[in-house]
Design a binder for these strands. Sequence first.
DNA 1: CAACCGCTGTGACCGGTATCACCACATCGA
DNA 2: TCGATGTGGTGATACCGGTCACAGCGGTTG
Lengths: 251, 251
Amino acid sequence: MKERTVGLETFMRPPAPYGLEIIESCVKCPHREERLFCNLPEAGIKRLAEITSSATYPRGATLFVEGQALRGVFILCNGQVKLSTTSADGKTLILRIAEPGEVLGLPATVTGKPYELTADVVEPSQANFISRAEFLGFLREHGDAALRVAQQLGETYHSAIVEMRNIGLSHSASKKLARFLLELSPRETNGKDGIRVKLTLTHEEIAQMIGASRETVTRMFADFKKKQILEVKGSTLIIKNKAKLASIARE
Amino acid sequence: MKERTVGLETFMRPPAPYGLEIIESCVKCPHREERLFCNLPEAGIKRLAEITSSATYPRGATLFVEGQALRGVFILCNGQVKLSTTSADGKTLILRIAEPGEVLGLPATVTGKPYELTADVVEPSQANFISRAEFLGFLREHGDAALRVAQQLGETYHSAIVEMRNIGLSHSASKKLARFLLELSPRETNGKDGIRVKLTLTHEEIAQMIGASRETVTRMFADFKKKQILEVKGSTLIIKNKAKLASIARE
DNA sequence: CAACCGCTGTGACCGGTATCACCACATCGA
DNA sequence: TCGATGTGGTGATACCGGTCACAGCGGTTG
């Protein structure tokens, strides 16, 4: 694996022993089965390691920008990356926050079109980069990997559909916010007084995720607090009444 | 190729000489390069023909239903199929109208999840069916086909994103309708008085495509007519002032 | 033919939300 | 220390568009 500078504000990671690291990180990876290429035959993993370059990114760095000429895929090792798209009049829609293990820029890379989204780092991240040419070559050599890629794409598509239904069909901001909060489950832990969720997004960003204005998000939060559904302590959110939240989300 | 009964209201097509038809229809296919598997090596096509079964469907037939256990993919040969999704409270969102050459049920088939959409026939259609097991087997044997599948998925995803941006970011119904009309280009022909588009959808269906109510669609149409942008003659729509329509779509 | 159905066309009403304008804090760097 | 900047919180207002109600208007069907 080679080190590589990416974009403008990129910090370098100390060099790693050649070829070993991706395998190693694979073995250590907590959600190993979810990772795209981890259970390939040995030779495949080795080849993959050769064409991969790794880099770390600080908060605020940008992996790629919507419409930008395509370079390749980024495999997110850790951290969080915000995927968004912007309309002509400057409004932004955040599609989702990518978690470790996800492969970013995959649709663009396989189709050869420009990136369809913008990827911004929200939590300091480490990502492995593979250029398009090498990635496609790899897929051609390893048929099962191609199939695995297709599966990833299918799942991404599926979640896009779900997202779409949520945004397109419910014009009520409270519903959308409730649904959004309920879908934070990957980040949740149980506390004595309810489910605790770490939520680093600003109201503005939440608004962009559910297709509403910043002010209404603020108001909805106030409303939910008044109704004893939520509580906010710093950057952690406590869901005190999940059932009620769910009922708001439903109807 | 074997014939196969699908669903409830299926009409049978006369049997075809074994193995030949898909190749034949491929050769005849007007958008050959767009079709997924047409330029595979001979052996691949032959194998594909063996596992394919064909059927024709009348208007109103249903290929598959959202949430339904997955059976396999449908390759649309001709006709039009409406792809939609429904929310808990019964509202429907139409994602797009599939055109010949498209592969339906692909994301679900590769991921193994239930169908994520409902597919209804709007224009009498012929489709080739391949069961999941056989399809996956085929992909495993033919690595390049898997890659091609990934590309299709990537493109479908891309169009979903575009759709999403349109619906999620513009809360103005006029914008959304204008944009929708401008995207009808595949069906358009030029007339002396403007661009003529064949549009068989009802106002209700258009409403479901752009995330609005039936009445507002009717009103917007009236408005556009008054502004000399549109004209409607039966099921053909004449866009008299595309520039104006585009400017509405933009801002 | 009447009866019925699905589609289009309108009017009236009203609620949710975007928008604007402003304030109150924090945090941060000069 | 003092602005500058980003964020949360709130009120007032306008207005878009959803919803309801109903009326015409081809079709189709018995």
